[in-house]
Amino acid sequence: MEAVLAVTIGILFAAAIYMLLRRSIVKLVIGLILLSNAANLLIFVTAGLERGAPPLVPRGMAAPAWAVADPLPQALVLTAIVISFGVLSFAVVLVRRAWELVRTDDLDHLQDTDR
């Protein structure tokens, strides 16, 4: 399972970087979205995957006796998803505003509009 996810993450990163290098600003934002999803998936996988073993401690024991899934990366991913959602929605609004003001979707045309 880890191997499949690792390849998926690799493809996501590659696609994200390809999109980031495009000239279109909308595609740039799509690249950012892919990038943050790739990072989230990567954190999820790094601590190792355990199928069907919730990290619950049985009553009367100090620690579970069997291998359980590590809950911490999942908490991290949740935080990261919330943050990236906020930031990316800002990016989308920014791109929309830039379109309204500059009337271009081409990063090359955005040169020297700051004078």
Partner: peptide
């Protein structure tokens, strides 16, 4: 209008750094 170019570069590169 003048702020858009800088803002897009700033947002993109800082997001890249965060990731």
């Amino acid at each position: 209008k003048a702020q858009m170019e800088g803002a897009i570069k700033y947002v993109t590169l800082n997001l890249l750094s965060s990731v």
